[in-house]
């Protein structure tokens, strides 16, 4: 199948909904297949790439921070950016700027860009298909 461009809009903040993991799995699958992907992070989803996320230990399970290896979605974002590069695909990760500002999560992992709904619109126009994964 030839390279396609798929566009995703995510809305959920980290650690709140299973939708986040499912969205990431779809993005991962698209990149593994060699497609280009644009992700527009809207509302709480702008915190997914926040650079200051830090893993923690888990005393309930008796695991220190290294053993717990607690997911920080920023590392998932970085891994997806690396995957795209490895596959010769393009992953454009756009953070809705106003959503970033109101949440104070301006420091995002390298490779993400600030944007606006106009950028989502551009991606909609450019992509072969778009999915919006809304919050509730």
């Amino acid at each position: 199948m030839s390279k396609q461009h798929l566009n995703f809009l995510l809305m959920d903040a980290p650690y709140e909904q299973a939708r986040t993991t499912t969205g990431f799995r779809m993005i991962d699958a698209a990149l593994r297949k060699g497609h280009d992907v644009t992700v527009f992070c809207y509302e709480g989803a702008v915190a997914l790439a926040f650079a200051k996320q830090v893993p923690h230990a888990n005393a309930v399970h008796g695991r220190d921070a290294a053993q717990e290896d607690h997911p920080n979605p920023k590392d998932w974002v970085a891994a997806l950016l690396d995957l795209a590069q490895e596959k010769g695909s393009k992953l454009t990760w756009i953070q809705c700027g106003l959503c970033v500002d109101e949440r104070g999560v301006g420091e995002a992992v390298a490779g993400t860009v600030r944007g606006s709904p106009a950028d989502f619109h551009k991606a909609v126009e450019a992509a072969n298909n778009t999915i919006v994964i809304p919050t509730r």
Partner: peptide, 17 residues
Amino acid sequence: RATIEEQDDTVLWFTQA
């Protein structure tokens, strides 16, 4: 609900804590 990201169910974890 976010059990993959948290590596736990947060309520069951909270209960144990």
